[in-house]
């Protein structure tokens, strides 16, 4: 069985991206990120290898994100966008880096406008998962995955257009 350390070593970028996609405030992100770690840590003993480890990780992390609902005073007092830069230990500089950073923020901001289940599906798609794998993680049919994904992509595209993404 995989140990917690090797799982975190391999999957922390996934947890980070799930955290960013399901929150729009740094304080909420921290809480959700921590929550996903807690759930994986607590559930690890029950991992039976019936599913692939990556599938299992996505299930636990997404189930945690989907049922995460932060409504503390701390969140309410903060601006919706907050300051995400504190997450960077080394600040990027230069036009290209700034543009990349702006694109990332715009993408997360657009994803945050989707419904929770839509965020989960688009996230899995962007992670490079195939329809059957997305269907397996989400527990929906493969054909429905295709239908939903098409609809979500269109929705995301129109949100990005509204936000002024130039290449939209």
């Amino acid at each position: 069985m995989e140990d917690f350390k090797s799982i975190i070593d391999e999957y922390y970028p996934v947890l980070y991206k799930i955290g960013r996609s399901f929150t729009n405030r740094p304080a909420d992100f921290d809480d959700l990120y921590q929550e996903m770690l807690i759930q994986i840590h607590h559930s690890l003993n029950n991992f039976r290898s019936e599913a692939k480890l990556s599938t299992w990780i996505y299930r636990v992390a997404l189930n945690t994100a989907l049922t995460f609902n932060r409504s503390s005073k701390k969140s309410q007092n903060e601006t919706p966008t907050g300051n995400w830069n504190y997450l960077n230990k080394e600040e990027d500089s230069g036009t290209e880096a700034q543009e990349r950073e702006a694109n990332i923020e715009m993408l997360y901001s657009a994803i945050n406008e989707l419904k929770k289940e839509e965020r989960a599906i688009i996230l899995l798609h962007l992670e490079g998962k195939h329809y059957d794998e997305i269907a397996d993680i989400m527990g929906i049919s493969t054909s429905n995955t295709g239908v939903k994904l098409m609809r979500i992509k269109n929705k995301l595209q129109s949100i990005l257009r509204r936000k002024g993404y130039e290449r939209a």
Partner: peptide
Amino acid sequence: ANSHYQSLSDVEKMAKQKSEN
């Protein structure tokens, strides 16, 4: 995402804290 990664001991500490679910 890489820059956000904490040390394993920090992560283990976080994993043992109380849940907000």
